[in-house]
Design a protein around this nucleic acid. Structure first.
Lengths: 210, 210
DNA sequence: ATTCATATACCTATCGTTAGGTATATCTAT
DNA sequence: ATAGATATACCTAACGATAGGTATATGAAT
């Protein structure tokens, strides 16, 4: 049984490359391509129905997250494999919450891509190796809405203060903690979100926290 | 006469894709691949000499600009075709200054890529359609300073990079400036915006800059 | 009852930013 | 032609963040 896929990416050359790779794989057929989410929906409207949609996250007009959300309502049996350059936890979680069944970064090799496609068709999830460990753990535990439970209350509290521009020492005094404790929380936040810089933390906080 | 090429990109899947595309093209042969600039140099040291090097710009360890500069000294007959996701003029100019003979973005299609390779081998320059056609004209062109902006062009440029999480040293290298100069601009931005922390700058940039 | 997650605290080395300067060169407009 | 703005470059001290640890106490869940 041949796996039928649609590829969505705003870089045409990348689509061409994937198509070329998959044309050599047995039992996989590319039946359509799109440069943004909206174009995928148009293909589906024309009754071009694949088994898996391989989609980039960041695309103009309609991004991969919006696309996946739409699909999980209109075509719930259709599997979505996210294909991104970024391994930031936020992206992974957003895609999973939207309904994606797998996530691979663009530095996997072709065999891993093919493995991922087969895994999804079997009904399993697939995540590439370089993603943070926690993600798999959350799904093993079948915990829902991982975004909400990602950071603990304390971590969230501290992240909010970081985003306000407070230093570790100021936060420590405010919460009557040791500076060391605040720094430990900082490190744990970094690890959980797979973000290394203060700049990144600020951007995350602005997007995801009240 | 077959055109021999080496592909350099930090995303293995992208290399695999290009290789797959080019394997179907007549008279083009991929003789090597690399995940960063240094790996390209190693291939050349082992007497693997291509006609064209197809290289990404942003790569770890040694980026495409550094690689191209090195090559234009060590292997001046070798043609470099830059292959980037970004069409920012600064990138194009940097690559051209470094000695690249062409620049295509990753949203060209496969036929355009092949055209570009043939054009370079013929000895001409090639730029994909979405780039400013006359690069020299761009150099001569007077850049317009629209309306009364608080920050200067340079300051804006640097602030955008700060907001992307780049350090002063990284920005300095990218803009070919001294770290000291970048820090001076930083201080001037602080003063003009009356913001003292990096955190504040990031928030300002997200709100006010494209 | 014991494991696990959470929260706490400490240590150190290194990196990056901030703040206080000074000093030119060029470009722009009066 | 000259003042003012812009862009460049350098120096250093102090402060804050990052990345490696280690270690203990507690409450919740199996």
């Amino acid at each position: 049984m041949t796996i039928k896929i649609i590829i969505a990416d705003d870089h045409q050359l990348f689509i061409d490359g994937i198509k070329s790779i998959l044309s050599k794989a047995i039992a996989i057929e590319t039946i359509g391509e799109a440069n943004n989410g909206l174009e995928v929906l148009k293909l589906l409207e024309n009754n071009l129905i694949p088994d898996v949609i391989l989609t980039d996250i960041r695309m103009p007009i309609m991004d991969g997250i919006k696309l996946t959300k739409t699909l999980s309502k209109s075509h719930p049996t259709l599997k979505v494999l996210a294909l991104s350059m970024f391994d930031q936890t936020t992206d992974v979680i957003e895609m999973l919450n939207a309904g994606a069944k797998g996530y691979v970064t663009k530095n996997v090799d072709k065999s891993e891509l093919i493995t991922a496609l087969h895994t999804l068709v079997k009904g399993d999830y697939y995540f590439s190796k370089n993603l943070p460990q926690d993600i798999k753990a959350w799904f093993d535990k079948e915990s829902l809405q991982p975004e909400e439970t990602l950071l603990t209350k304390r971590e969230t509290e501290i992240l909010q203060l970081i985003a306000k521009g407070r230093t570790s020492l100021q936060i420590a005094k405010h919460l009557k903690l040791s500076k060391y404790t605040v720094d430990t929380h900082r490190k744990n936040i970094h690890k959980k979100l797979n973000i290394k810089s203060n700049t990144g933390l600020v951007k995350y906080a602005l997007k995801h926290l009240p």
